[in-house]
Amino acid sequence: MAVKKGLVGVMTTRRPGTRPFSESRFLRELSQAARLVGVQLVVFSPLDISWGHGTVLGFTHKKGVGWQARQYPVPRVVYDRLFPSRGRWQLYFSQVARMRRTFRVTMMGRGLHGKWQMYRIIRRYEDLRPYLPETRLGSVQSLASLLSKYETVFVKPVFGSGGKGIACVRRWRGGYVVKRVGRPRLRATSLAGVVPALGGVSRRQLVQQGLKLNHLQGSTFDIRSIVQKNGDGQWQISGKAVRVGRRGKITSKLHTGGRAYSVPSVLQRCFSERAEAIEAELESLAIRVAEVMDKHAGPLCDLGLDMGVDVEGKVWLIEVNSKPGRKVFLQIGDREARQRAVRTLMEYAK
């Protein structure tokens, strides 16, 4: 990418405080990586653009000094780390659209339009279809149909991240058990009792086949892979790690108490002589999915893929995230992977 005036922008959501953005550590690391490749990183909110002057209130980081604020020209290359609340999403969207039109901004990536879009795109490809759990738009009929086929079914919001709003419905002793993130477990004797226990089922949700994923220390695990475009615009895997959920939790998210481990060690423990072949399949799947999503929903530069391996050793694609976190690499002590994931972004931006 051609960076004008040596500036790369990172677009964030405004919040109260003297440093009005989150992800401070990640952004500080991005700033350091930017200097190494010869550009300057400016953190800003699209709500702070001065349209008449073509400037924006931006924050830059200086070692030993910290974050400093002043007016900068609106960067022409921008990396999107916006996470607005539902009530302010439209406001941010309109400002970003205006910014792109007015200043001809090149976006390094973009947010995906929900889990249903991801599923429909990937399902078009015959070679990728076997990796997808059966998934339908939410309705009582979809829920009933999948529960007649599978012992466990997940209900997920079409839009959302961090495991929020996910529920698990499991057939149990002639009835059902419903578990929702952050809620007590409920039991229902019939499907009519399941729906209110879920808080309703609508087309804003997905109903998805539950997978019999492999276990580590009594808890299911998945694999998070960070896939990025490098300085040549080619997709590469910058790092990967296993996330193990807390016992009894329905997700493996780290902020709900999950733990992280290195991929080779866990696969070797669970699958012994098949471990290398499974890891190779996970890597090839990650690159293939990134290429497909970039073609149909791009331009993209940075994806987090959540994949699972079931008790039979079959690989599954669970989710694709266009604004992935990198905390998992800190938990396994893989500083090299975290630094590579940060540096690769700036090499691509340049």
Rank of each mutant, 00 (worst) to 15 (best):
S322P: 03
V8T: 00
V177A: 12
V242T: 08
R259E: 13
Q217H: 13
V309R: 01
R243K: 15
D302Y: 03
L330A: 14
R136I: 02
I250V: 11
L57S: 12
G138C: 07
P73L: 11
P324Q: 01
L30A: 09
K115S: 02
V242L: 06
L213I: 07
L27Y: 03
L303D: 00
G38R: 04
A286Q: 01
F59C: 07
A297G: 00
Q234V: 06
P73Q: 06
R185Y: 00
R203I: 02
R187C: 08
L132I: 06
A275C: 08
R136K: 13
T251R: 07
A280V: 05
R88T: 15
S139L: 10
V43D: 08
V315H: 02
G298S: 04
I121N: 00
V242D: 07
I121E: 11
R269L: 15
L254A: 05
R288C: 12
G111M: 11
Q208P: 11
L132P: 08
L317P: 04
R14C: 01
K249E: 15
G114K: 01
T13D: 05
Q228C: 04
L267G: 07
P73D: 11
V263S: 03
L300I: 06
Q117I: 02
V158W: 05
S284E: 13
G304N: 06
D294L: 05
V177Y: 01
I318F: 02
A197D: 05
T256S: 12
R185D: 01
I226S: 11
K323A: 08
Y119E: 11
R171H: 09
G54P: 12
M293Y: 01
F83L: 14
G257I: 06
K229R: 13
L27M: 14
R274A: 12
E134K: 13
L305R: 03
S219I: 04
Y79A: 02
D306P: 02
R25E: 15
H113V: 04
I122D: 03
L191H: 07
K314D: 09
M108H: 03
L216V: 15
V65E: 14
E151L: 14
K327H: 13
I226E: 12
P46F: 11
G17L: 09
G66K: 08
I49C: 10
L213R: 06
K63N: 08
L211W: 09
R100L: 11
T55S: 14
P196R: 09
R28V: 14
P264N: 05
L186M: 15
